[in-house]
Design a protein around this nucleic acid. Sequence first.
DNA 1: GAGCACTGC
Length: 624
Amino acid sequence: MTNGQIPKKMRLGSNEDDFYQRLQQQRRSLPIHPARGRLIHEVQRHSSVIVIGETGSGKTTQIPQYLYEAGLHRNAVIAVTQPRRVAAITISKRVAQEKKTELGHLVGYCVRFEDVTTDSTKLKYMTDGMLLREAILDPLLKRYSVVILDEAHERTIHTDVLFGVVKAAQRQRAEQGLKHIKIVVMSATMDVDHFSKYFNNAPVLYLEGRQYPIQVFYSVEHQTDYMFASLVTLFQIHKKEPAQKDVLIFLTGQEEIESAVKSIRDIAKEITGAPNLVVYPLYSSLPSFAQMRVFQPTPEGCRKVVVATNIAETSVTIQGIKFVIDSGMVKAKVYNPNSGLDLLKVVRVAKDQALQRTGRAGREAPGICYRLYTEDEFETFSNTTVPEIQRCNLASVVLQLLAMHITDVAAFDFMDKPSPEAVKKALEQLELLSAVEKRERYKLTPLGRQMAAFPLDPRLSKVILTAKDFQCLEEILTIVSVLSVDSVLFTPPNKQWCHENFIDMRNMKTAQEVRRQLKEICERQELPIQSCGRDTVPIRKCLAAGFFMSAAELQREGEYVTLSTRKVVSIHPSSVLFRCKPGYVLYNELTQTSKCYMRDLCVIDAEWLYDTAPNYFRNKKPGR
DNA sequence: GAGCACTGC
């Protein structure tokens, strides 16, 4: 999809009807159009259908319309889920245009902080996380007659949980004699059998796309320095290829990308007899005005080079890319459930990810992809990226499943199960927070049910719900909001001039919106929003109630050990507590870099830990 | 005395 806006040129000199006619003509010329009848037929006959379509097939905009036009919505709502907010919003805008209706009526969207739907909305584009949240209130998804799960191959944690939730809703609605629900899974994967089997051997429809052929070249030898190799490759292309043929380079992170951009600009100055280069970095923490630069059309006689993270694999699509240079590396978060330790590590991509990168070269014309690894090396890459649900903390997901009355989470029908240890760990954490209790089975406590209403890590929900006992919810709402978004403190990549007051506006605005949302939920739960003034004790006691399992104790030698696993840790140099030596601290996060660092700290008294979790600390003896 | 892949509720 493009950005869903109507190009200005199209509007000028043509009246509204012409515009609409042209849209309809475009619809009919999409590669998916000939499959319309078959698709409707299959969805009528089967309760679940898998649709495999390459990019550019038009499946995301057209299939929901086809089903609606065939009356398959049966006067209820067709939900179409997307992993990303922007996609949900822009696609719904496009479909509203095609349906010639105002957005929010027949066609609408629903993402966090924004619900553009009405009672008349029948085609509802939404994020997968949003539908999952709705399922907590209504596990049978009664408002929906069809659920379309798009981009299923991305296997986000939300999509994976939704697979099980919609499948269960389908079965239970049938058992209870309620109106049936159709499931359509749309994916670009080649692992079709896996999807089909999971959905009771659902039929598979293959759609043609509009992907142009791409030639793939591998390195002849193993590359020890992919940064260097990417520069060499770029300038080989640059010297022989005509201008306007743009290049996209995949590297791993901000620092690497900024340094590559600088090198490219420096080298380009020395080169004569080749087109001018315009070079742009692209990564998510880049301010959006800087991200937008990559969309500027390449000036006449120039070549555009974009050096990007994996943001350019799916989230950002750049027109005019002819060459892709793939380092074969990606920076990924590695989570260790036992130590609770996070670390960012540069690792090999999987084959599916390499394929996705390659595909970025053939969106408008045939392209070429240079892989900076040998074909033999490629063969050793794993086939698919491990689904998110198998590599992160499950506390939040398990709480949500319990809130949907799924009592045996370990036996839940996941397409790919998380490890039993990870589920056990999550249940233990929830038990420590008093969100669940173990009888014969784990059961949600009233506190746990309240916690599930918050779109937060359970530790943060617990902090909020503790605040009413300490009359400090006003302050806690702010602290929790800031803790639940990316850092609101801005570190300029080049430290020449600190004109932004070191505040990241985007993240600060998100924190504001989060606070507004959390406050609403608190008001609905009738929690009194009171302030404790300048006294920080009640605030820190609340934080202790949610984070007591993330506490560390100062040792005689001047270092810290965690109370949970006796791991040696240090205060991060960016903390205001660096060089201070408080006896006890709570931390939000452990990050392994040159040392194991605690981030986002709070000074506490050992006594508070006993007070808030006496059983947990009985054998750990902080301060005794 | 430091180094921040990407999403989402």
